Amino acid sequence: MLIEIRETPFDPLAELSRYQAKPDLHGKAGALASFIGLMRDHNEGDQVSAMCLEHYPGMTEREIARIIDEAQVRWPLLDALVLHRVGEMLPADPIVLVAVWSSHRAAAFESCRYIMEALKSRAPFWKHETLTDRGRWVDRNTDGY
């Protein structure tokens, strides 16, 4: 399992490929499910030109680890990867990569969604958006459906 909070941009597909090349994963997984979250240029009906994402170092990683532990109790996972961006971002920038490996697709799909939804609702991140005429802190996450 790997959890990283990064202040610099990352290429989710390159990171996924690099992580999957680990010898202890080679040939073991029958399924890989992943989710890549990108910054949108709009939110709540407003245009968003930039965003700053803040976190509480240490606390954020511990909460994500708890979420992954919960997923491992519910589904037979072989491994999990969560990379999350913090700092200044622009529209289309990758924000988050969640990936899980399992022997079977159902466990991979369901656990990936569980981790992502729990991360959005429980991990301590704070979002400040830059709009055309002002900035604002985001109180809540948008509905994921």
Rank of each mutant, 00 (worst) to 15 (best):
D24F: 10
A71F: 06
V48H: 02
I64W: 04
E54C: 08
T60Y: 15
L25D: 05
Y56N: 09
Y19F: 14
Q47V: 12
D69R: 08
K22N: 12
R18P: 04
M59H: 13
N43M: 00
E63R: 15
K22H: 14
D24P: 00
P9V: 11
A65C: 01
V48S: 03
G45Q: 01
A33C: 14
M39L: 14
G45M: 04
Q47L: 13
P23I: 11
R62W: 10
R74T: 14
L38V: 14
A14G: 09
I36Y: 00
R66G: 13
R66D: 10
G30A: 02
Y56V: 07
C52E: 12
I36H: 00
A21V: 13
H42F: 11
L25K: 07
Y19R: 13
E15Q: 05
G37D: 03
D11L: 03
D24Q: 10
D11K: 03
E61T: 15
M39H: 12
E54G: 09
P9H: 12
Q72T: 12
I64E: 09
E70N: 11
R66H: 12
G30K: 07
I68T: 06
I36A: 00
G37A: 02
D41P: 03
R18Y: 02
M39C: 15
V48R: 01
S49Y: 04
A29I: 04
I36L: 00
A29T: 06
Q20A: 15
P9M: 09
A33G: 08
A14L: 12
W75E: 11
G45K: 01
L13S: 11
D69A: 10
I68F: 10
D46C: 00
F35D: 03
R40A: 05
E54P: 08
A29W: 11
M59V: 13
S34T: 06
I36K: 00
E70I: 02
C52V: 15
S34I: 01
G27C: 13
F10R: 07
